[in-house]
């Protein structure tokens, strides 16, 4: 019952905010627009009106998306009740910033401002940059500090940018699942996410013909499909993966995704289905009136919407045929 009153306000508020997300009709109209400018005009009638007004160049539409992401996180920070919830959902942006700064340090140059998230993550970017300037990482959360130290130790032996990503991704998911330990819904969500990432990673490693040791290194530990499941399958053909996952919730994602890989040699459909799976998982729980479900759902829906807009805008700017764009479009949340 304590949960009820904790979440009641935020959930109700999110219900109103959900109304302002793009609906299927608006997405379809964007898709049917002739050219990028017209697609942007559709956005001008929505929640994005003022941002579209400020946009001077269609090619800079990423600014609009970055601005919206920042705005939503700023707003949500004011009223989301459970700090761990937001910390978990924003953690990926901290990790992203760390990756960029570490790589920039490795290259010995400044990181471009365009590719960092200044105000979205849990740690303000300025603070992170200060840590890098002083090479003092004591103020980082323990899981990140450990990762940075591990990267630093490995770097002197063999500077490999891929390691930065791998170690930080792994630290991220370990941390997410630890954070979500007290929020069962969130834990379930991250477990699904980690499983799907692992399945995709497994397929990619097979396709790229990397060795088994490498696979062991890149698999995340968070999912509930164990690492040995993948390493055992490594020497089998990809079809065996379908059979083995036939009874899991991911059967459809894997079957259809791999069918397209066999046919056209790409994982586009797999990625779309994986994203849709996560979105649908959250969506099916979002009507819960007193719980984190709707709150997680809203943030995921915003991120999904930004992705939708990006896919359409990139497609329109480069004059891709609508089918090609549609193949990649994710579901709509509302």
């Amino acid at each position: 019952m304590a949960n009820d009153s904790k979440y009641a306000y935020a959930v109700a508020r999110v219900r109103v905010l959900e109304n302002r997300l793009l609906d299927k009709g608006q997405v379809d109209r964007m898709l049917e627009a002739q050219g990028a400018r017209e697609a942007l005009q559709v956005l001008a009638e929505t929640n994005y009106a003022s941002a579209v007004g400020e946009l001077k160049d269609v090619h800079r539409f990423e600014d609009l998306l970055a601005g919206e992401l920042e705005r939503v996180y700023r707003e949500v920070r004011r009223f989301y009740p459970e700090p761990r919830l937001l910390e978990a959902l924003a953690a990926k942006y901290d990790v992203h910033n760390l990756k960029v700064l570490l790589k920039a340090q490795g290259l010995g140059r400044e990181a471009g401002g365009d590719i960092l998230y200044p105000n979205v993550g849990n740690i303000p970017l300025a603070k992170l940059e200060a840590m890098f300037a002083q090479e003092d990482f004591r103020d980082l959360p323990p899981h990140l500090r450990q990762a940075v130290e591990e990267i630093g130790a490995g770097w002197s032996q063999r500077p490999d940018p891929q390691w930065i990503d791998i170690i930080l991704d792994r630290a991220l998911y370990d941390h997410l699942l630890a954070l979500a330990d007290t929020i069962p819904f969130l834990k379930e969500f991250f477990t699904h996410q980690a499983n799907l990432v692992n399945i995709k990673t497994f397929i990619r490693v097979k396709i790229l013909r990397q060795d088994e040791d490498f696979l062991k290194k890149v698999l995340l530990r968070g999912g509930d499909i164990h690492q040995s499941f993948f390493t055992d399958l490594y020497h089998e053909p990809l079809e065996v993966l379908c059979d083995r996952l036939a009874l899991s919730p991911y059967a459809q994602v894997v079957n259809e995704g791999l069918a397209e890989w066999q046919e056209k040699g790409r994982l586009t459909r797999f990625e779309k289905l994986a994203d849709d799976f996560l979105l649908n998982f959250v969506r099916s729980h979002r009507h819960h009136p007193f719980g984190p479900q709707a709150l997680v759902g809203y943030l995921l829906a915003v991120e999904n919407e930004l992705k939708l807009i990006r896919i359409i805008m990139v497609g329109k700017l480069n004059k891709l045929p609508p089918e090609e764009i549609r193949e990649r479009l994710r579901d709509v949340y509302v």
Binding site: E62, L65, A66, H96, K99, V100, K103, A104, G106, L107, G112, D114, I115, L116, Y117, P161, I164, D165, T268, E271, L306, K307, R310, I311, V314, G315, I325, R328
Partner: peptide, 15 residues
């Protein structure tokens, strides 16, 4: 580029 955010894309290939 369409399915990844500009930030992720740049990060992925900056080094």
């Amino acid at each position: 580029r369409a399915v990844m955010s500009g930030e992720s894309m740049e990060e992925a290939i900056m080094f």
